[in-house]
Measured scan of single mutants.
Amino acid sequence: NKFNKELQWATWEIFNLPNLNEEQVKAFIDSLRDDPSQSANLLAEAKKLNDAQA
C-alpha cells in the first residue's frame, strides 16, 4: 500500500531529524497517524522546522 510505505518513510525521517525536540517529534508522528495521506506535507513541515531550529 502506497500510503503505508510513505507513512513508514515519513515516520523514520521525522524520528531522525536532529533539531526537533521530543514533543515536536511526537506531535508530527501523531499527525501522521491521524492522516497518513498527509505524510509528504507533514514531512516537509517537519524538515522546515528542523532547519529553522538548526
Rank of each mutant, 00 (worst) to 15 (best):
N1Q: 07
K2P: 13
K2D: 15
F3I: 14
F3Q: 13
N4I: 12
N4D: 15
N4M: 11
K5F: 03
K5T: 11
K5I: 04
E6Y: 10
E6K: 04
L7F: 08
Q8D: 12
Q8G: 05
A10V: 14
A10N: 03
T11F: 14
T11M: 15
T11G: 04
E13R: 05
E13P: 03
E13D: 03
E13A: 07
I14E: 03
I14F: 03
N16Y: 04
N16Q: 14
N16R: 05
L17S: 02
L17G: 00
L17W: 02
P18V: 06
P18S: 07
P18E: 09
N19F: 11
N19L: 04
N19Q: 04
N21M: 09
N21Y: 10
N21E: 07
N21F: 07
N21T: 12
N21A: 06
E22Q: 10
E22T: 12
Q24L: 03
Q24M: 04
V25F: 03
V25A: 08
V25P: 00
V25Q: 06
K26Q: 07
A27G: 12
F28W: 02
F28M: 04
F28T: 01
I29K: 01
I29G: 02
D30A: 10
D30E: 11
S31F: 10
S31M: 14
L32R: 00
L32W: 02
R33T: 14
R33P: 01
R33E: 13
D34W: 13
D34H: 09
D35E: 06
D35L: 05
D35M: 08
P36H: 03
P36L: 05
S37L: 05
S37D: 06
S37V: 05
S37G: 08
Q38P: 01
Q38F: 06
Q38I: 06
Q38R: 10
Q38N: 11
S39E: 03
S39A: 14
A40T: 12
A40H: 10
A40G: 06
N41D: 09
N41W: 09
N41H: 10
L42M: 10
L43K: 02
L43G: 01
L43M: 06
L43V: 15
A44Y: 12
A44R: 08
A44F: 09
E45G: 05
E45V: 08
A46F: 02
K47W: 05
K48P: 00
K48E: 08
K48R: 12
K48M: 11
L49R: 04
L49I: 10
N50M: 01
N50I: 01
D51T: 09
A52E: 12
A52H: 11
A52R: 09
A52T: 09
Q53P: 04
A54E: 10
A54M: 09
